[in-house]
């Protein structure tokens, strides 16, 4: 998945629940279907919640990984 380049980056580092999801939802609205949002978060709850949010809202989680103390997610916007 290393070849996927994001169209937008959301740095939600330092924010705690529910803000990473709220910000991601807001950011996603300005993207076109098929475009990819990269989310960086440090809240441990994001590990379960960002994938759940993507699934609940018809977006596709492409990748989820941990780098040091950060959690990285790539989410592709689904069809409206």
């Amino acid at each position: 998945m290393a070849d996927i380049k994001e169209d937008r980056l959301l740095d939600a580092s330092g924010l705690s629940c529910p803000m990473p999801v709220v910000k991601a939802a807001k950011e996603m609205k300005s993207l076109q279907p098929g475009q990819v949002l990269k989310i960086v978060a440090t809240d441990r709850g994001s590990l379960a919640d960002i994938p759940a949010w993507a699934e609940d809202t018809g977006n596709e989680l492409l990748e989820s990984k941990t780098e040091g103390s950060s959690y990285l997610f790539l989410v592709r916007k689904g069809a409206p």
């Binding site: 529910p18 999801v21 709220v22 939802a25 807001k26 919640d49 759940a52 949010w53 609940d56 809202t57």
Partner: peptide
């Protein structure tokens, strides 16, 4: 909450 706050 992932649905509840999707338009927050």
């Amino acid at each position: 909450y992932t649905r509840m706050l999707a338009d927050a």
